[in-house]
Nucleic acid binder design. Structure first.
Length: 572
RNA sequence: GCGCCCUUAGCUCAGUUGGAUAGAGCAUCGGUUUUCUAAACCGAGGGUCGUAGGUUCGAAUCCUUCAGGGCGCGCCA
């Protein structure tokens, strides 16, 4: 139960019923009306802005309106103990003991569903989709964790989520990749020097793949062309195996892998283009040269183009190259038509910062393909800046000198990586400081949250307490002190955090919230050092109130960390 | 030139779909442990929320201007 919403509903329906009495001509729009926990200095449990919102269109003084509304509520909503009016027209509400009692028992009842929005949509989330030309690096890692946690969050709400990986196993980069493997094989088998051609992949991992291919095959590898099909299949197999293993170590498992090649070999593209020709989103035409850097071999030729300008893009986009073959975007359009046909309620793509310029055209494509029925949302993750020994650490996949996820996992545990990757909004660059993450100290927020759990479990151990599945409290037990009340308010806010994080696709709000909750807990814990009154355990027994509060914390910690898929150790 | 993102304390960043005195962590300074885990806690200093306007009861948040930084701007993938 989200108390903010249910109480707000009580208030709004009460006001609607008494519309005439309150001299309200307009109560149609309650937009902007909300009920929330006020800043600590206000002191009350809840605060409502409804009178300020309604005053203007009805030409009323917000303060006078607040007085009337207060009197109205007093007789009708029993969960509200008292209501005060503050400056411009806030209603500051305190909850009755009865209300606390109901809310808490409801949380116990909901348990591992507490906070869930209880929606039932289908989602397709495409994320990672790293090119199968090498292992995952740290930049992929951010999008990977982001997509995974967003999926978990949406599942927590009751939705069905398909986590999808689009394998770019088609095009010139794959040829270069396969050629690199071929040359490494020649190097091993015939002691030939590796070529220094520009677009090849020189990285060490190519040698590993080459060795594995050699172990498996007795072919002579005399000619690149003759062995190409076999080599491509094997090279892709091993690079995808590498990537999947990295993902698995991060705790990420995709439900679906879609190969670009399979899309190309289907008739999806032809069908999509036929459809878009009818709606005039695709036409033959000419394109102007790009405005950025000058391109050498620019030719103004007639070709099929997608009119992405209709969707706010800077320019229309080519579906064909000069030689008439399809562009990457054309294949991606086909892939997205395939997604549209699978009839998800919502599509989400998680992209890296270098793909920002791609968003408008692909969103436009989905809009056109689905006739505005399917919404594609693109979330862009900004760069990860690596720091080592206090200075920035550059990486380049082509040169082969990058920090792979595997390297990272050898030094930093999975929990820290997952938590750290979400410790920033996706909209800002993330500084990933190797030294700090390795320190395993309080600088690493994941420990702080885990430590909170470890302390709770230590209390349970000391008094031999077993958490029961069916729990409830009796109203007589309600006598929370100010620290406990503060923690309770934070806990009541959990559903709101879930809601905002879900609606805005901003999973980072969850680690931030958990950190704040942990702060309140640690602070309360330490109060026992100053004053025996606040000790959790006395004479081998714990106070009922305290046990109630820490069990509620436990529920939120478990629900939150489950979404993050970060462990909660019982001892640290 | 254009598009997207960013600009909040010395540093790194949160900020409740517009709310009340703008918050954390780190750093600095001071304090807390015979007592449930000090991987912790408490206190102090530190702010023109990049700039200039606008919208309104109310703006860090919405709109516009300008400045600074990042990413991108293929008929590559």
């Amino acid at each position: 139960m989200n108390i903010f919403e249910s109480y707000l509903q009580d208030i709004t329906s009460l006001i609607k019923k008494n519309q005439k009495k309150l001299n309200l001509k307009q109560t149609n729009s309650f937009k902007g009306v909300n009920l929330e926990i006020p800043p600590p200095n206000i002191g009350s449990d809840l605060s409502c802005n409804i009178c300020m919102i309604l005053a203007k269109p009805n030409n009323l003084d917000p303060n006078n309106l607040a007085v009337q509304v207060r009197d109205l509520i007093r007789g009708h909503i029993s969960d509200f103990k008292d209501i005060e009016i503050a400056k411009p027209g806030f209603l500051n509400i305190n909850l009755s003991n009865e209300a606390y009692f109901n809310i808490i028992n409801n949380i116990f009842l909901e348990d591992n569903k507490f906070g869930s929005l209880k929606t039932n949509d289908t989602y397709n989330i495409e994320f990672v989709s790293a090119n199968p030309t090498g292992p995952m690096h740290i930049g992929h890692c951010r999008g990977a964790v982001f997509g995974d946690v967003l999926s978990n969050l949406l599942k927590f709400n009751g939705n069905k989520v398909t986590k999808e990986y689009y394998i770019n196993d088609y095009g010139t980069q794959i040829k270069n990749f396969v050629k690199s493997v071929y040359l490494r094989i020649r190097e091993i088998k015939y002691k030939e020097n590796f070529s220094n051609e520009k677009d090849l992949y020189p990285g060490e991992y190519i040698k590993d793949i080459a060795k594995k291919v050699l172990d498996k095959s007795k072919l002579k590898f005399d000619s690149f062309e003759d062995s190409y099909d076999f080599l491509e299949k094997e090279s892709l197999h091993y690079s995808m195996k590498m990537i999947k293993s990295d993902l698995e170590k991060l705790g990420i498992l995709h439900d679906s892998f879609v190969s670009e090649k399979s899309i190309v070999n289907s008739n999806a593209l032809q069908k999509a283009i036929e459809k878009l020709k009818k709606t005039k989103h695709v036409e033959e035409g000419f394109l102007e040269p790009p405005k950025g850097e000058e391109i050498k071999n620019w030719k103004k030729t007639k070709k099929l183009i997608f009119k992405s300008v209709l969707f706010g893009d800077d320019a229309n986009r080519a579906l064909q190259k000069n030689d008439g073959s399809w562009t990457y975007f054309a294949n991606d359009l086909a892939y997205h038509s395939n997604k549209v046909l699978r009839k998800y309620d919502k599509l989400i793509n998680i992209l890296g910062a270098d793909h920002t310029g791609y968003v408008k055209r692909i969103k436009g494509a989905v809009q056109a393909l689905s006739e505005n029925k399917t919404i594609l949302e693109c979330k862009v993750c900004q760069l990860v800046k690596l720091f080592k020994n206090g200075s920035p650490f550059k990486m380049s996949k082509r040169a082969g000198d990058f920090i792979s996820v595997n390297d990272l996992l050898n030094e930093v545990n999975r929990d820290s990586i997952r938590f750290m990757m979400l410790n920033r909004s996706n909209d800002v660059e993330l500084e990933f400081d190797f030294d700090k993450v390795l320190e395993k100290s309080k600088e690493n927020p994941v420990f702080y949250v885990q430590y909170c759990h470890a302390r709770i479990q230590s209390i349970f151990r000391l008094i031999n307490f077993q958490v029961k599945k069916k729990r409830n409290i009796k109203s007589t037990e309600l006598n929370f002190n100010k620290y406990e009340k503060e923690i309770l308010k934070k806990i009541f806010e959990w559903p709101k955090i879930v809601k905002i994080a879900s609606n805005k696709y901003e999973p980072h709000r969850i680690p931030f919230y958990l950190y704040e909750l942990a702060t309140l807990f640690h602070s309360y814990w330490s109060k026992g050092n100053e004053d025996d009154e606040f000790k959790f355990i006395k004479n081998g027994k714990a106070k009922q109130n305290t046990m109630t509060v820490i069990q509620l914390i436990l529920i939120v910690l478990q629900n939150g960390m489950n979404i993050l898929n970060v462990s909660l150790p019982s001892k640290m």
